[in-house]
Lab assay of single mutants.
Amino acid sequence: GLEHMADEEKLPPGWEKRMERSSGRVYYFNHITNASQWERPSG
Rank of each mutant, 00 (worst) to 15 (best):
residue 19 M to A: 06
residue 32 I to A: 08
residue 15 W to T: 00
residue 1 G to W: 10
residue 2 L to I: 13
residue 32 I to P: 03
residue 36 S to Y: 12
residue 32 I to N: 08
residue 24 G to M: 06
residue 26 V to A: 07
residue 24 G to N: 07
residue 17 K to E: 08
residue 30 N to V: 01
residue 13 P to H: 10
residue 15 W to Y: 01
residue 30 N to G: 00
residue 3 E to G: 12
residue 37 Q to S: 06
residue 38 W to H: 05
residue 37 Q to G: 02
residue 42 S to P: 08
residue 5 M to W: 11
residue 27 Y to T: 01
residue 40 R to K: 11
residue 29 F to G: 00
residue 37 Q to D: 01
residue 34 N to L: 13
residue 43 G to T: 12
residue 5 M to V: 12
residue 10 K to Q: 14
residue 9 E to M: 08
residue 27 Y to K: 02
residue 43 G to K: 09
residue 17 K to H: 04
residue 39 E to R: 06
residue 22 S to F: 11
residue 19 M to K: 09
residue 29 F to D: 00
residue 16 E to P: 00
residue 21 R to S: 15
residue 33 T to D: 04
residue 39 E to L: 06
residue 31 H to F: 14
residue 38 W to A: 05
residue 33 T to Q: 03
residue 39 E to A: 07
residue 6 A to V: 13
residue 9 E to L: 08
residue 22 S to V: 14
residue 43 G to F: 14
residue 25 R to V: 05
residue 20 E to T: 09
residue 31 H to K: 13
residue 35 A to S: 10
residue 42 S to K: 09
residue 21 R to M: 15
residue 16 E to A: 05
residue 41 P to E: 01
residue 29 F to L: 03
residue 4 H to I: 14
residue 25 R to K: 08
residue 10 K to A: 13
residue 27 Y to P: 00
residue 6 A to N: 10
residue 36 S to A: 11
residue 37 Q to F: 03
residue 21 R to V: 15
residue 22 S to A: 12
residue 9 E to K: 07
residue 21 R to L: 15
residue 3 E to H: 11
residue 30 N to W: 01
residue 35 A to G: 06
residue 14 G to M: 04
residue 36 S to W: 15
residue 38 W to G: 03
residue 18 R to F: 06
residue 33 T to R: 04
residue 31 H to Q: 09
residue 29 F to M: 02
residue 1 G to C: 15
residue 35 A to L: 13
residue 33 T to Y: 06
residue 15 W to H: 00
residue 10 K to M: 12
residue 3 E to Y: 02
residue 18 R to D: 01
residue 11 L to W: 02
residue 34 N to Q: 14
residue 17 K to V: 10
residue 26 V to T: 08
residue 36 S to V: 15
residue 15 W to D: 00
residue 43 G to L: 14
residue 38 W to I: 05
residue 30 N to Q: 02
residue 17 K to T: 07
residue 6 A to E: 12
residue 30 N to P: 00
residue 37 Q to H: 03
residue 1 G to P: 11
residue 32 I to L: 10
residue 22 S to L: 13
residue 20 E to I: 13
residue 13 P to T: 08
residue 37 Q to I: 05
residue 24 G to L: 05
residue 36 S to T: 14
residue 15 W to I: 00
residue 32 I to Y: 11
residue 42 S to D: 11
residue 28 Y to M: 00
residue 13 P to A: 10
residue 31 H to G: 05
residue 28 Y to E: 00
residue 36 S to E: 08
residue 40 R to Q: 05
residue 4 H to Y: 10
residue 9 E to I: 08
residue 42 S to N: 11
residue 8 E to G: 10
residue 9 E to Y: 09
residue 21 R to G: 14
residue 25 R to T: 04
residue 22 S to W: 09
residue 15 W to A: 00
residue 9 E to G: 08
residue 42 S to A: 09
residue 41 P to C: 03
residue 7 D to R: 07
residue 24 G to A: 04
residue 3 E to S: 11
residue 29 F to W: 07
residue 4 H to M: 13
residue 40 R to N: 06
residue 23 S to F: 04
residue 14 G to T: 02
residue 5 M to Y: 11
residue 12 P to H: 02
residue 2 L to M: 11
residue 36 S to F: 13
residue 22 S to N: 14
residue 20 E to W: 08
residue 19 M to F: 15
residue 14 G to D: 05
residue 27 Y to E: 02
residue 27 Y to V: 02
residue 12 P to M: 03
residue 21 R to K: 14
residue 10 K to E: 14
residue 2 L to Q: 12
residue 39 E to Q: 10
residue 1 G to I: 12
residue 22 S to R: 13
residue 40 R to H: 09
residue 9 E to C: 15
residue 28 Y to W: 06
residue 21 R to E: 15
residue 19 M to P: 02
residue 31 H to D: 04
residue 41 P to K: 01
residue 13 P to W: 13
residue 41 P to N: 01
residue 37 Q to A: 04
residue 38 W to K: 04
residue 25 R to L: 07
residue 36 S to I: 15
residue 39 E to F: 07
residue 41 P to S: 01
residue 43 G to M: 14
residue 22 S to G: 14
residue 12 P to I: 02
residue 4 H to D: 13
residue 23 S to D: 06
residue 30 N to F: 03
residue 2 L to T: 11
residue 2 L to Y: 14
residue 37 Q to M: 06
residue 23 S to T: 14
residue 10 K to F: 10
residue 15 W to E: 00
residue 13 P to L: 09
residue 19 M to H: 11
residue 35 A to V: 15
residue 30 N to M: 02
residue 14 G to N: 07
residue 41 P to F: 01
residue 43 G to E: 13
residue 25 R to A: 05
residue 34 N to I: 03
residue 4 H to R: 09
residue 16 E to T: 08
residue 20 E to K: 05
residue 42 S to C: 15
residue 36 S to H: 09
residue 43 G to Y: 13
residue 21 R to T: 15
